[in-house]
Design a protein around this nucleic acid. Sequence first.
RNA 1: GGCCCGUUCGUCUAGGGGUUAGGACAGGAGAUUUUCAUUCUUCAAACACGGGUUCGAUUCCCGUACGGGCUACCA
Length: 517
Amino acid sequence: MGFYKLLFTYYLYRMTRRVRVRFAPSPTGPLHIGGVRTALYNYLYAKKHNGDFILRIEDTDQNRLVPGAEQYIIEALKWMDIRPNEGVAFGDGPYAPYRQSDRKDSYRQYAEQLIKSGFAYYAFDTEEELEQLKAVNQNAKYDAATRLQMKNSLTLSEQEVEDRLNKKEHYVIRIKLPENEDVRFHDEIRGIVVVNTVQMDDKVLLKSDGMPTYHLANVCDDYIMQISHVIRGEEWLPSAPLHVLLYRYLGWEQVMPKFAHLPLLLKPDGNGKLSKRDGDRLGFPVFPLEWTDPKTHEISSGYREKGYLPEAVLNMLVFLGWNPGGTQEIFSKEELINLFSLEQIHKAGAKFDFEKAKWFNAEYIKKLSNNKLADLVKADIEKKFGHIATDYLSNVCGLVKERLVFLSDLSNNYGYLFKSPEIYDETVLSKVRSIKDGLPLDDLIQALINGSENDTIAIENKLKDFAVANSLKTGDLMKFIRAALVGELSGPTIPELILLLGRETSARRIENCFSQL
RNA sequence: GGCCCGUUCGUCUAGGGGUUAGGACAGGAGAUUUUCAUUCUUCAAACACGGGUUCGAUUCCCGUACGGGCUACCA
């Protein structure tokens, strides 16, 4: 009876277990857009189940630390509004600290526990000796077949091991894998995965500098922090069996988190996973924020600086590897939280499509209110053109909103809405010069300034009438006015432009342009 | 090389034992716009291949090919 009660309690526990997921990046550089997606999926899953989303910094490789990388990760998550509710920089929960280097001392006991229970051992091999192993046989691994030829606590006498440890000789702790055993586990996305231990090797758990490797630190922290689901990139799938064994040998298998290995983000062209280089090569960002390499000072562009809305990036990203079914593509974060599920995550990698990213951004800009858009571009505009009245900027936004792909397009392509063209471009002038002899400039200016029409149709009609009355082709007149107002031959409709710029300003531009014909 | 994972239009994907295999991006054509952009209409475009199972397979199974990942005292 006791057994069944235990079993029941166990299942009840599994069923009611609080969802706790984590995003655990390594601060070895700027957070890649694929990493952002991993964070996003974790976030959505946590929110969907009213669980916790934790940020844990995995900085166990002291050699690869990059200054500023941790701060970058935090800023990127904030910009994307993918906020952990627990973890580094987001408020300590019950399991602080959340930076693995700050938890360094906590891992050794588990490695030693494994030694005591016979699932791990000390290894004293030098770099040369390890190279030697490979030299003999390219495919040789540190495993059941070879470990008895190596210098470790399985081959050395107890006394010698003791001596070496006392002398503070460099050593690592390695897991001792069974020789030939199928390790099987369930992946929420891929189903049952089986790997035999002959394919694996005795991975280092504790490094000679006293730091744990990813495998140990990850398993210990996930256990201690009561992580319920490990949602991470597919690159971890091959080492998942090792982690399963670690949970088992540490006696934690009953509370082992569920695994979900995400498909990778692939290069838009060619093959392989998306990397930093691809962005530089193809001219689109692979990072959420701009990043300057502290060593080389090389700058990598970011979505934020490029003029993307974080909501658009998020919406674009969520569909690279997941789809709720149906044909809707624009979703708010709340809708995504509602719809998200692990079952609908794909198995195959997704090629990153920059054109689609642009489309999402344009859609999100179009949805913005004029005031909100004005708010977002104000700093950029004023940096370039000086102070601009808020009302005016808001009107500008209303006029050009549907023509923008990036926020930065406004200051880059519509400068004439903030500053009059002074010297007109000859290629533009040459296309409207034919009007010079037949246009009564003063009459046009008078008609414009004295007009009181305040809707676009009335202005358009007035200009058309003016053309007819002066035997001008409407098209020629319009083209000239556009050139004068804009400095180019494309843009919003002329009545809209006149209304926005004002009659005085428009008249001055026309006079100025005419004088240059 | 070995192991693991995968494969629907160019790309992201929906679907799923019987469908005209649907949508979106990009591309073509057209309409609207005096221009450009938007918007609208429209066209083209896919189940990797070979075997099974089945009355029937793009869907299930097995192979092959191809792609991806891993193979460190990196994560």
